[in-house]
Design a protein around this nucleic acid. Structure first.
Lengths: 205, 205
DNA sequence: GTCTATAAGAAGATAGAC
DNA sequence: GTCTATCTTCTTATAGAC
């Protein structure tokens, strides 16, 4: 990785742990293994480093949202998958999605940084909301809608059904972000949630 | 309100909006209507102001938790209430609880401050978790446990039931903290959630 | 591109008059 | 208790040699 990218990487780590204002350029430089003034050959200011991180984050999030929308625009395929999977395989998929959010380094650090900085800049709050509320809700709603259409699940209110499916994921992710030691317990209860959800909404397979 | 208390009040507002590091003592003083140096007659440092806020918050949270535990230790009474309330009254109670969390000035500001500062100090993350995860989960679990014992609701997994009841409250509170304009929509869906929850778990009254 | 030395400025905190 | 003036320290950023 070249120096410029390593600066962004170390800065993201520090910003996600302490917040922008509590990180000094000297700290970033230290971690990269250079002196602070050298850093200004790559970025014109501390703010420019932050801006570059945000820009890349937006790029990656947009890419990811497009992928989800492709699947979302063709949700029959996903719903078919949902229908054909055994309960255990379904639980496995949910847990994997959950663990990806928690363990993927880039995802975890940007989520923490957004959490810290969100009240400072409205656009970051918007990004947080889209990434962790609206996009997942939209994706799961398309999926569950199809499952209902095909008679795999039963409800007259898919919106609430989707909230009841996703909200536990979100709450437990919040728990694990703050205290990783509670991950095993969270995974156990998330598994039980998925099974219970299927039972409540009448999945019989 | 005396000056010392007004300093704490304005500081809490600013810390909850911008985070500790982004607030200057001059700003706090301005809002109180004094000059920065005068502030040092009341507190020995900026950190001391922050510490005093945290201390008062702990005191208040502890008080509140004790009240909930008193009800929790005598959950039969609450479960009786749950049983006797009409569905509409139940929805009303849930919405009121939700709106209190959102609209009570002190609660809203401390929650925002904890959100911003939580990764900086582990003990604040712990406080956040107790206040918004463990305490509510414990309280609702006692309540729902009794409702199950009395046959008002049916399940063999009260823990998951409690998570499925509370997680939507938490998610929608997160939404409204970041974008208050989404409050009406959130209240509507929360109502539908409570009704749906009752139906799923077999409440017949 | 990296370094040392240093400028420029911001913010927390103190001194001492009133 | 509040003020003005000031000190101190910390941090960002630049200058200029290598």
């Amino acid at each position: 990785m070249d120096t410029k990218q390593r600066i962004l990487d170390e800065a993201l780590t520090l910003f996600s742990e302490k917040g922008y204002a509590n990180v000094f350029v000297g700290e970033i430089a230290d971690r990269v293994g250079i002196k602070a003034p050298s850093l200004y050959k790559h970025f014109k200011s501390k703010q420019a480093i932050f801006d570059a991180i945000i820009e890349e984050m937006h790029r990656r999030f947009l890419e990811q949202a497009k992928l989800l929308n492709i699947q979302g625009n063709n949700p029959k395929a996903d719903a078919e998958i949902y229908k054909r999977l055994s309960e255990e395989e379904l639980v496995g998929l949910g847990i994997n999605l959950f663990l990806y959010q928690l363990h993927d380094d880039y995802t975890r650090r940007t989520r923490k940084m957004l959490t810290i900085e969100q009240f400072h800049h409205k656009d970051l709050a918007d990004t947080y909301m889209r990434q962790y509320m609206d996009d997942p809700m939209f994706y799961f709603m398309s999926l569950l809608n199809q499952a209902v259409d095909q008679g795999v699940l039963q409800t007259d209110n898919v919106e609430v059904m989707t909230l009841q499916f996703y909200a536990p994921f979100y709450l437990l992710m919040t728990v694990c972000d703050r205290d990783p030691e509670r991950e095993p317990e969270s995974i156990r209860i998330l598994k039980e949630h998925i099974l219970q959800f299927n039972k409540l909404y009448g999945r019989t397979v």
